[in-house]
């Protein structure tokens, strides 16, 4: 078995990255940074779509202040739109997950109240994919 020659010429460098290594490290850091920018840049939503059961109740502009009352099988869900963000203010459901989810403002975000079959979906300029519209 032959030992490759390049184990010997690293003997003078003690744990020190060589110039090419620095290049690779810097390129990698830049690449990772751009990946975060590319994949994690959530655009602000412009519209809100509300579904009740299997029908779309309506699509609303997010840049307004408005309170919506949506009737579902177990009662009335109150949804508040407040200048670019939206939340469930009140819901007749037992565990209140939808209310605790708080304000939504990014395109692609959803809040669902399963017991009352009401869902909020935020839409941006281009629709992002998620498990709801996949």
């Amino acid at each position: 078995m032959s030992r490759l020659p390049y184990s010997s010429d690293t003997s003078n460098s003690h744990l020190k990255p060589l110039i090419g290594d620095w290049l690779v490290i810097i390129i990698s850091i830049v690449a990772v940074f751009f990946m975060f920018q590319q994949f994690w840049s959530f655009e602000h939503a412009s519209q809100l779509r509300i579904r009740q059961g299997n029908k779309i109740i309506g699509t609303y502009d997010l840049n307004q202040t408005r309170e919506l009352h949506i009737k579902g099988p177990i009662g009335e869900s109150i949804i508040v739109i407040n200048q670019g963000k939206v939340r469930f203010k009140q819901s007749p459901c037992h565990n209140q997950y939808c209310v605790h989810q708080g304000w939504l403002s990014h395109a692609g975000e959803v809040a669902i109240c399963l017991p009352n079959q009401v869902s909020l979906q935020l839409l941006g300029a281009k629709n992002t994919y998620d498990s709801l519209n996949y």
Binding site: T10, P17, L18, L23, S28
Partner: peptide, 18 residues
Amino acid sequence: QLPKKYFSAITLSICAAF
């Protein structure tokens, strides 16, 4: 295949990890 003078195991390791 990169020149060993400029690229050490660190480059290889990062490339392999990616």
